[in-house]
Design a protein around this nucleic acid. Structure first.
Lengths: 231, 231
DNA sequence: GTCTATATGGCGATAGAC
DNA sequence: GTCTATCGCCATATAGAC
């Protein structure tokens, strides 16, 4: 294993327990523990997304979270576990929007809706988007298996929806996967290349007007680009 | 300066001398020196693009280039100089395609041409694209100044071309910067997210059929998306 | 749970022989 | 120009007191 590889190493990453509603004995303590863990996770996401796994030190994270280095090791047994837990959480959020693809609906509504949801994700979770991008760009050492299995099968499923639109003549012929890539790339660009966007336009998605302008620009381009040519 | 920051530190990065045609005394030796430097640069690009600046060790690069660690330090005085020289080279290639934007031309030709050139870059220099992306995503500590000045002014220039197309009614109204972002994001996606693309489609741009299919899908979507609505 | 040491190992960079 | 040996630093992680 080279320095640069990060693997699961058999580490079991236990998902965060949801805080319980009934406060049994010990529940309050557990909640406090979970809350602090959650807080560290959020802080760590922010740091990891700036400097990458290797560029980030435990001390940086500890400082940002206002705890000591050793204390951090009380909540996460090592750097990898911390990193993996974050990636796992990101993946869930990243996938949610795609559920809007349903055959019954009108393509225009579905596509507009999906584009907006993805762009909202770029606006509200830009750090998560960037960490995800960092992971993929470096060969997805952790997520590769996931991409080839779960993600692939989800996309095949959604592709059928798009194909049905094509065969019903609702949109013009296009490779469904290409269409999805197109939406992913244009929307994520505003999170991943945020610095470049801001350097050139002076704005980013947190600017409401810029968000709306961007959203409708992408929506229009895709909707109009998919209209069947008139005979 | 945190561990993760990489700055110019006043380091002057001297561009590689072009090998001379006339072989003066000492020229042959210099050429050999330059060639080896160039070879190290190419090897290092490959490694940096996989693991990032901090994830890459000098030893990895040296091994890949089949030289010793100390020998590498003979050609580059430190890790940063090596990294900076690479980034500088990338920037040049990255910008070349945009010169196709000229007002005199037909928008459809220009856009199709530009999309193809950018996609060729994603196909032929995917590692450079990924290293560039790594740099931007992490806040462009080195390139930020460049983005805000040179790149911004180039884009403002090219925007005028696009605006003239709009005002002449050749394409429908669109924010020129947004249009350029769309082309950048959709084409670079196939280099930066190459692993994801390959995991899902089983192919990448090195596959000729896939390249052509992708190229025309992007071209069509953008060209058709920009067509003026018929009255 | 949180703290003060401290062990351990890796990595960038240099010295100096050849 | 290339090599062997090594320095010095810094980051992860642990031990053990409180």
């Amino acid at each position: 294993m080279t320095k640069a590889d990060i693997s699961l190493k058999g580490t079991k990453v236990q998902p965060l327990k949801k805080p319980r509603t009934e406060l049994e004995p010990g529940a309050r303590r557990r909640k406090k523990f979970d809350d602090k863990r959650q807080f560290i996770l959020e802080t760590a996401l922010s740091v990891f997304s700036k400097y990458g796994f290797h560029g980030t030190t435990i001390e940086q994270i500890a400082n940002s979270a206002d705890i000591s280095k050793t204390n951090l090791f009380y909540y996460f047994s090592n750097k990898e576990e911390l990193y993996l837990t974050i990636l796992e959480n990101i993946l869930n959020d990243w996938l949610k929007p795609i559920t809007v693809f349903e055959e019954v609906d009108d393509p225009e509504d579905v596509l507009k809706n999906y584009i907006r949801l993805k762009l909202e994700l770029s606006r509200d979770q830009p750090e998560a988007s960037r960490l995800f991008c960092l992971e993929i760009i470096q060969g997805a050492p952790i997520l590769k298996g996931y991409l080839e299995n779960e993600l692939k099968s989800i996309l095949q499923d959604k592709s059928k929806v798009i194909e049905s639109w094509v065969s019903k003549g609702k949109i013009k012929p296009i490779n469904p996967i290409q269409l999805i890539f197109f939406i992913w790339s244009t929307t994520q660009h505003f999170a991943d290349f945020n610095v470049q966007v801001k350097a050139i336009t002076g704005k980013d998605l947190s600017n409401k007007k810029f968000f709306e302008e961007t959203c409708s620009a992408i929506q229009q381009l895709i909707i109009d680009g998919l209209k069947r040519p008139r005979l």
